[in-house]
Write a protein that binds this DNA or RNA. Structure first.
Lengths: 180, 180
DNA sequence: TGCTAAACGGAAGGACCCTCCGTATAATAA
DNA sequence: TTATTATACGGAGGGTCCTTCCGTTTAGCA
């Protein structure tokens, strides 16, 4: 892959995320190409159709979330790491709302995508949760999958405000926390 | 409303339901107008935009479901009536899947639609459920809302087969049934 | 039967997805 | 450094779709 091709690929994914966030999942391919500073031809060479672009944006969202899990595990104490990761997870899940319909199409077209991404997230969740549990600062009768099922759908709900999600996450965190 | 206008309105709703079922929620307005035997101009006079047509189709689906509740309550014994209604409810909920994305848009645009329709369905459900419970043929520790929450999301799930839904409904019915 | 408000049909405007191909450029070798 | 070429770029344009507009038709009524 040539240097300019790689640069444009990355620009396009960044631009797509921004435009989706700003204009919703129905944003036009022209708008995304314009924001990335390339022509639509370039966009379509990298992403043969709209749904492939959605998939790429989603994959990098998951990459970032997994990376956050590794980062907080390395940098922070077990409990603060868990808090930071769950906050990142809420942001991730809420971010999906801007292009939720398109994401559903992507899942329909390629069912493995859903399975693979859920699995990666579950592993990231368990990295953080397991560490907190072994350190004795988190109750041990829930696991990563449970937390995904609890927090994920809550955030995907279109009628949930940012404030609400903060308060609900605080409540959940209080319920999870345990003095060592 | 002139006679031809009313006739075309009804034809359009019927045609839309058929075309959505056949081609999915993304079906074109031209295809729907053609199926109804009218021009697109006529379609747009009755339904100023796509989402209004989706809403109309959905409203008649709910009308039919409510009507079924009244019908079975009048015609059948309490338990057979409950079985018949729950089967109709499953068909209704599965029917939504063909234009689920569009329906979500309609709910976003007009939140009252969701609330109103849920309420009508809940009432219909409770008409049938309450009667069966008073007749002593249905356990009394669940109500109409519970059954909606139990059965509805199950049917909306895209990965559920018709066979599965039949078996699951049978299971639920067995759990609900009580000898008088 | 004649009148008119209401309804009809479909051409056309505008937006969008995607393709195609002539042009430009990064990478490489002389 | 320069020439070569595979690779990538840009954007006009084809095709489809939603929606608007307006000339034509018709139902309902006096």
């Amino acid at each position: 892959m040539r240097a300019d091709a790689r640069r444009n690929y990355e620009r396009l994914v960044v631009a797509a995320r921004e435009v989706f966030a700003q204009e919703g999942g129905g944003a036009s391919m022209e708008a995304i190409a314009r924001r990335a500073g390339v022509g639509v031809g370039t966009l379509y060479r990298h992403f043969p159709n709209r749904i492939d672009l959605v998939e790429a944006v989603y994959r990098t969202d998951v990459d970032n979330l997994v990376h956050t899990a590794e980062q907080v595990s390395a940098d922070l104490e077990p409990w603060p790491a868990a808090v930071a990761f769950l906050e990142a997870f809420v942001r991730y899940a809420q971010g999906k709302r801007t292009f939720l319909n398109e994401l559903r199409e992507a899942f329909d077209k390629n069912p493995d995508l859903r399975v693979d991404m859920m699995d990666r997230i579950r592993q990231a969740m368990e990295l953080v949760v397991g560490r907190a549990q072994r350190a004795g600062v988190m109750r041990t009768d829930v696991d990563g999958s449970d937390l995904m099922q609890l927090v994920g759908p809550m955030c995907t709900n279109a009628t949930l405000s940012v404030d609400q999600s903060k308060r609900l996450l605080d409540t959940i965190l209080d319920g999870l926390h345990k003095e060592p």
